[in-house]
Design a protein around this nucleic acid. Structure first.
Lengths: 143, 143
DNA sequence: CACACTTACTTGCAAATGCAACTATTGATT
DNA sequence: AATCAATAGTTGCATTTGCAAGTAAGTGTG
């Protein structure tokens, strides 16, 4: 087999390659939609985490999304600047902060859910209801 | 339903969210493995494309991977510096280049295939042979 | 309580990225 | 042939990212 054929085979049969391409497309779509509200994808991820559970520390947010501490730190800087989140002193530890949504942050929730819903609908469009269930189950196994 | 529950639901039931997380993990694994050979993920993608078909123009490479022209331009700068690829004048157009592997670039092929194979094996590990086929078919539909 | 060790978070700096503007061709229109 | 638009590729500049080092606070051990 030639190198060319082998490469093509490696690429077209690779689960990872396909996931990366789909992920890239997804990312661009999310960036486009979130950009309208001045949010980046990492900022959005943090917003979702804090909307789900108010009062987490930065370290806890990082763990829940697999994001390095410095990225959390800087993303929250921005989110505080734009008034969507706020840092408050941790009740028992003086070095930690707890992170809370502001009213404006709360208000943004439904918009964010809507974006996720739209992007997912577009993603899943080529699949039947049955296939979507199967696909979700397989993703959950891998995750 | 509270905002918290709604957020959790949005996150855990979202195909896109899961794909993003898997994609991120995949990316970190590839970065770690490729880093040993001084390659970034985009550089790797270009190497694979050129190994598959020698003599493409930069624009063609960009289309085949959905990468903007400036990224191709700069990635090839690096790949030329490290001696894996080379630009040659296009036979009919004086503004385009054709991109070719050097002997060193050819030699790297098998290593790259090996990395893709390893990372994919790890990714697919939680799935049975049957499930892998199903998963690949579903990914192909969405791609 | 002094010591080293870990944890929580921040920040300086270098490299990577994205956008928009740029040069140089080529193609299309008249 | 002269003009205008589109294409191929590059580059300056601002923002983002990642690493490594920094500060400050908490933990554990003798």
């Amino acid at each position: 087999m030639t190198i060319s054929q082998q490469t093509k085979r490696t690429r077209t049969s690779s689960l990872g390659w396909m996931i990366q391409r789909i992920g890239g497309r997804l990312n661009r779509q999310m960036e486009a939609r979130l950009g309208e509200h001045g949010l980046s994808v990492p900022q959005f991820a943090i917003m979702m985490t804090v909307l789900e559970r108010d009062g987490l520390t930065q370290a806890e947010i990082g763990q829940s999304y697999g994001m390095p501490a410095y990225a959390i730190s800087r993303a929250i800087d921005h989110l505080e600047d734009t008034g969507l989140l706020e840092r408050r002193p941790h009740p028992t530890s003086r070095r930690a902060h707890t992170i809370h949504t502001t009213p404006a942050g709360q208000d943004l929730g439904p918009t964010l859910f809507g974006i996720v819903k739209d992007v997912n609908a577009e993603l899943a469009a080529p699949l039947s209801a049955e296939e979507r269930k199967t696909f979700a189950a397989l993703l959950r196994k891998i995750l």
